Amino acid sequence: MDESPQEITSLVGREVYSNNGVFVGEIEDVRLNLDTEVVNGLALGELNSELFKQHATGRKGVIIPYRWVRAVGDVVLVNDIVERLKGTEEGEEEAAV
């Protein structure tokens, strides 16, 4: 397995899925902290309209925190938190345990 560093631009164009396999969007850009030289967010476009329809702001993308990223390969996997957006939109409440 090649673990050599990759250029940040190699992320652009990759599809983003939740760890449950739901398409979230496509990476259009990355957000960097130039002082620490660390990626701290991913700018997504071509969004899954079902996930973000209630959060429509008239814009065509969102920035998700890089801390949500679980794995980077041919696609990028993120925590299922974005799917919870859809659940709260539909009025579903998590059952109290």
Rank of each mutant, 00 (worst) to 15 (best):
G58A: 05
T57N: 05
P65Y: 05
I81C: 07
E50A: 13
E90C: 01
S49T: 12
L77W: 14
L77P: 04
A43R: 14
L47W: 15
T88H: 11
G25T: 06
G45P: 00
I64H: 05
L51Q: 05
N20A: 10
P65A: 03
E3A: 11
T88N: 04
M1R: 07
L85S: 06
V39R: 09
D2C: 04
A71L: 07
L32H: 02
D74L: 05
E94S: 04
P5K: 08
L47R: 10
V22E: 09
N20H: 13
I27F: 07
A71H: 12
F52C: 07
N79W: 14
G58M: 06
N19V: 14
L34G: 02
V22H: 09
E92A: 10
E46M: 08
L44H: 09
N79Y: 15
E89M: 08
D2N: 13
N33G: 03
G41M: 10
E28R: 10
T36I: 01
L11G: 06
V39L: 11
E94H: 08
V12L: 12
V30Q: 02
H55D: 04
M1H: 11
N20M: 06
E28G: 11
D35F: 07
V38D: 04
K53C: 06
L77H: 13
A43H: 14
E26K: 14
V30N: 03
L51Y: 15
E3H: 09
V62P: 00
Y66R: 07
I63L: 04
L47P: 05
E92V: 07
S18H: 10
E3R: 08
E89C: 11
E3P: 00
L44F: 11
V75F: 14
R59Q: 11
N79H: 15
E93M: 07
V24S: 00
R14A: 00
G13F: 13
L85V: 06
L42E: 04
E15V: 02
A56F: 12
F23K: 02
T36P: 00
K60N: 09
V69D: 05
E3I: 08
G73H: 09
G13H: 11
E28P: 00
V38G: 02
N33H: 09
T9V: 08
L77Y: 15
V76T: 12
I81T: 13
G21D: 05
T9H: 10
E50F: 14
Y17W: 14
R67F: 10
L85E: 06
W68G: 00
N33M: 05
E83R: 04
D2M: 04
D80S: 13
R59T: 06
G91D: 04
G73E: 13
K53G: 01
A96N: 08
M1N: 10
F23Q: 01
T36D: 08
V12K: 15
V12P: 00
L44G: 01
K60Y: 14
G25D: 06
T36G: 00
L42D: 02
